[in-house]
Amino acid sequence: MTYSPIGKLQRVPLREVWKHEAYDFTQWLQHNIDVLNDSLDLNLITADREQAAGSFSIDLVAEDEDGITYVIENQLEKSDHDHLGKLITYLTARSARAAIWIVSEPRPEHVAAMAWLNESLNADFYLVKVEAVRIGDSPAAPLLTLIVGPSVEAKETGRAKQELSERHEIRKRWWTALVSHPDAKLHAHITPGFGSWLGASSGIPGFGYWYSVTMKSCTAELYIDLGTGDSEQNKQIFDRIKESQASIDASISLPVSWERLDGRKACRIRLNLPGGYRSPEEEWPNIQFQLITAMNELEQALRPVLKSLSVSQ
């Protein structure tokens, strides 16, 4: 069988094709914007050179058929911080919806930065690698490869991260306010964190007093876990405490939820309250006052029972 000859793809130094970045490459791209469209699946229809952005000049400002503005920054060398800064500056100066950065060699840290920008900002960022290639004695041809681009998944990931960050920040404010309350003596020494739980030891190993908070509710509880790996021992301790249920319930102003949690290792005795960290912040003081009061009532009601257990153990 006879095969047709197949040429070998050769890379050509960029400066042999475009000697000057602004005068050669940028002008070439302005008149061959379809090459960029094919590589990025865009539909840019105009491209203007040296557009003003304050005291700077943007390499290219393009628009697609929907009138969306793209700023394009060209760099026929390794990516650097200076050009990344320019790209963001141009994007904001022109109120553009998208930014395209074309480089000969994208550094890993800039690949990560562009991916982060796609997740974090309401704009689209493209990082494109430019090469020149030829087969045999053919004229050099451009090869544009998308390294980083926007995607639905990236935007969803960015929104999820932002929501998580906001949730962490607001929960830390919630806990900071709670432990600062003068009646929150059990947890006054605890450093507020970002989580949904805040706990302190009862002074007896295996028994902890924990607060929890969600968007719309909060709890105060005794958490029972002796840490022996034997869930049955936790259940036995819970049952012994429950023998005093009548007196404990009578000394607490809220309904008490006795949760043996069969099938799980630990047990708990919990008080549930309405209102959480997504409640209006002006309502937090009242919600937290009720929560702290509930915790103090729970601790006082359980203190003699836990003391007797500690002595008997």
Rank of each mutant, 00 (worst) to 15 (best):
K185M: 08
F238S: 06
E297H: 06
L36E: 05
A112N: 07
H181A: 15
E221G: 05
S253Y: 05
D41K: 14
V256A: 05
N74G: 10
R260G: 07
L91H: 02
P139V: 15
Y126S: 05
Q236F: 02
S95N: 14
G54T: 13
E282W: 12
L42M: 14
I252K: 05
G85R: 11
V128P: 01
K155D: 02
K19L: 13
G229Y: 06
R264Y: 12
F25P: 00
I204L: 10
H189C: 03
T92F: 13
Y23K: 07
T89L: 11
I100Y: 09
I241Q: 01
P285V: 15
Y70T: 05
Q300A: 11
I292V: 11
L178D: 00
D80E: 14
L298I: 04
R240V: 07
Q290S: 11
A62D: 05
M215F: 11
S180F: 03
S120L: 02
D183V: 03
S57T: 09
V17P: 00
E77Q: 15
A96F: 07
E131I: 07
G67S: 09
A22P: 00
N296G: 07
P205Y: 12
T176V: 02
A62S: 14
R171Q: 07
L146A: 08
N234K: 05
M114K: 00
G193N: 09
G263Q: 07
I241R: 01
T293F: 05
V35C: 11
S231C: 01
Y70H: 13
Y211F: 15
I68T: 11
L144K: 03
M1R: 08
G54F: 10
I45T: 15
L273R: 10
V128R: 00
R171Y: 05
D239F: 03
A220E: 03
F125Q: 04
A188N: 10
P108Q: 12
E63L: 12
H20K: 11
P304W: 12
A301H: 04
W197S: 01
A154S: 06
Q236S: 07
T176R: 04
K216V: 14
F194K: 07
V179G: 00
G149P: 00
A53K: 04
N37T: 08
G208W: 04
L261H: 06
I204A: 05
D82Q: 12
G203W: 03
A141H: 03
A98I: 05
K172Q: 13
E21A: 10
D24C: 06
Q300T: 10
W18L: 04
N43A: 14
W116A: 13
L271A: 02
L222W: 01
S253E: 13
S120K: 04
T214L: 06
S231E: 03
S217V: 08
Q51S: 09
A294C: 08
R94S: 13
L40H: 09
M1W: 04
A52Y: 06
Y23M: 10
R171L: 12
K235H: 12
L36I: 12
S79N: 08
D80A: 09
L9Q: 10
P139F: 14
W258I: 06
G276L: 04
A22H: 09
E21M: 11
I72V: 15
G158F: 02
